[in-house]
Design a binder for these strands. Structure first.
Lengths: 208, 208
DNA sequence: CGATTCTTTGAAAACAGTCAATCTGTGTGG
DNA sequence: CCACACAGATTGACTGTTTTCAAAGAATCG
């Protein structure tokens, strides 16, 4: 399980990890297994730790006053989950983070991170890179949200993040795109009519 | 001009700056004055430096294939401008950053930042805090964009960022909210009909 | 297999965008 | 000081997109 994280750190920091650094990481993180549909974080709680997804899938979402769910983030292997605002400011979170499949996470709390980034430049670089990556990902998503219509957003997802389409049910995809499931259904049949795309067993495959 | 930045760093890092640290900052940043409607960054260019707004106002926006502008970010005093993706990855930027008023900025390039964060814990803490703040701000904005309708987004702006309403023309506010100026105009007259709000000289004032 | 949940489809309503015309305020030059 | 031009904001009528509500049709799980 830890190997996935070692690899991730080596990629992000562009440095090889020494045995000593690996041991620092191994001691700092805690492996956590969650069954399908378990909360990693629940609305109202303070997000005490970040989680690195070794295997599995999660979604981070809020529930509004009308009972509608809004997915802010999908998590799959090699991605991090947690609510930055709650985590850093110790505010109660407005969001839920829930597993969509059985999920193994490597978790770490705030103090531990501060500790280990002081012990290894590679680890420090990794956390810096993560934070920057988070900002970039959010910027792009925001840009799409305010500048594209529903069909364009779906198209974008289809081409840039097809993994999500294959892995999450349509209701969640819809709320990730900020539209209703019915609208997504209609858009999909529109797009698939126009373009040469194969469809098998719930998995979309683009054939050109 | 530098005092605004010193104050900002002391606030963000929760530490007092020594004279030596102040001098490090003073040497690292370059003061830049831009007239109204000048580019700080232009689509297609690589964002070579970040800018701290000492006085003035900016907007960061993209122009889509239909010629529509989409405002991703407004900048006012004490905020930073720059395109994180372009800045960190050295990609050509998809965005323009333009002054809306005459603006004074303190600018700094990538290498300089790396240099000075190594020289002062307070400075390092400030840049970490900035990055986290950026992530939180973007998350909130994304959440609003996907979960609120046009009127709710305007309402939110009215209550949480009234400064922007007073400082930027309506066309820009509209594109910040992801709607057309005509729609904003209608929403405004709707909201102002419902609620007790005073209006004088282009400045909104909420009276309850 | 049956029960449940997810997806699709249809028709009507609500919402936001488009285009064109009017109104308002600002600054300019006569 | 007034007349005018100009840009920004508003309004109206219309079009297009998305939501809502309801019902039927698949897919999934025990």
């Amino acid at each position: 399980m830890l190997d996935a994280l070692f690899l991730y750190i080596e990629q992000k920091s562009a440095q090889d990890l020494s045995e000593q650094e690996k041991s620092i990481v191994a001691k700092a993180f805690t492996l956590k297994k969650l069954r399908k549909r378990q909360y990693f974080l629940q609305q109202g709680d303070v997000c005490g730790c970040l989680g690195f997804i070794v295997k599995g899938a999660t979604r981070m979402y809020s529930v509004d006053s009308r009972g509608n769910e809004h997915v802010l983030q999908f998590g799959v292997e090699q991605l991090w989950v947690g609510d930055d605002e709650s985590y850093n400011m110790l505010y109660p979170s407005k969001y839920n983070i829930e597993t969509v499949e059985e999920t193994w996470l490597l978790t770490i709390g705030y103090e531990k991170i501060q500790e280990i980034i002081g012990l290894s430049p590679a680890i420090a670089a990794t956390f810096r890179a993560m934070q920057i990556q988070a900002t970039i990902t959010l910027s792009k998503r925001l840009h799409r949200a305010i500048s594209l219509n529903a069909e364009e957003r779906f198209d974008d997802l289809l081409h840039n993040e097809p993994v999500f389409l294959a892995r999450f049910p349509q209701t969640m995809i819809a709320s990730y795109l900020g539209i209703k499931p019915e609208t997504l259904s209609r858009i999909k049949s529109n797009v698939l009519r126009k373009k040469p795309v194969g469809y098998k067993g719930g998995t979309l495959s683009i054939s050109a």
